[in-house]
């Protein structure tokens, strides 16, 4: 009985490790440097500056080129 529980738990753990590895890698192909045109996805969106004032996010690149980094969290 104990052995079957140990085997079941081990299999479950292995499956979880494999599954999370696949999810974490997410297929990988998410980088692309081809020139494209932004869709209307950001048209109405805003971000706040450090004075907590809202501004259109599209204004960040409307008249200039910008490297825009999305951070995970401040940690």
């Amino acid at each position: 009985m104990k052995i079957s529980i140990i085997i079941s738990v081990s299999v479950l753990l292995m499956w979880m490790v494999l599954l999370t590895g696949c999810i974490a890698n997410g297929g990988g192909a998410m980088q692309d440097n081809a020139t494209e045109v932004l869709g209307p996805m950001t048209a109405d969106l805003t971000v706040n500056n450090l004075d907590n004032e809202a501004l259109a996010v599209a204004s960040l690149w409307e008249e200039r080129r910008v490297v825009l980094v999305f951070l995970r969290h401040y940690g």
């Binding site: 020139t35 490297v67 825009l68 980094v69």
Partner: peptide
Amino acid sequence: GGLFVLGPGQQLLFQ
């Protein structure tokens, strides 16, 4: 997170 190179205008140069 992520990183994009954008603009000017509606150009998306890197994602």
